[in-house]
Amino acid sequence: MADLTLDPARPLARTQGTVHLLVTERACGERARGRGPGAGVLAEETPQEVRLIIGVEPQGGARTCQRSPATPFAVELDAPLGDRVLKDVGVYPAREIGP
């Protein structure tokens, strides 16, 4: 699993169907590029919210535990985000992604 935040370099455009995120692997490791994100993407869209879970394939072998750097990742929605709330449901309780 991974933690999700909005990418400050790519502001949220509610009239568009793409959400730009920064994905940070929860396990010790390195940038997720090449191992995901996208190894497991779940996007459930309702009229009120968009629920996201993004998985990253774990690295094998021994690692020293340092915080992994964030990896940019874009999620394509079925429709523009509009007034819907973005939620990271890969954590409990689910949390809103955004400002």
Rank of each mutant, 00 (worst) to 15 (best):
T18E: 07
A2G: 01
Q59D: 10
E76H: 14
A62S: 06
Q48N: 05
Q66S: 10
A79H: 12
L52P: 00
L22H: 13
G40W: 02
R95H: 10
H20W: 07
P58A: 02
E49W: 01
A27F: 08
Y92Q: 14
D88P: 02
L6F: 09
E76R: 15
C28W: 04
F73R: 05
V23M: 07
D88Y: 05
G36S: 10
L42H: 02
G98K: 11
A32L: 12
G40D: 09
D78G: 15
D83P: 00
E44V: 15
A32T: 08
A27M: 14
A43E: 04
G90I: 12
D3R: 15
V23S: 06
P11C: 08
D7H: 10
A39H: 13
P11G: 06
T15A: 08
T64R: 08
L22F: 11
V23Y: 08
G29H: 11
H20A: 09
R67Y: 02
A9Q: 07
L52V: 14
G36P: 00
P99N: 07
T71N: 04
V41T: 15
D78Q: 14
I97L: 02
A74D: 14
A13K: 10
R14L: 05
A43V: 15
L81N: 02
A27N: 13
D78V: 12
G82I: 04
D7Q: 04
V41N: 01
P93D: 11
D3M: 07
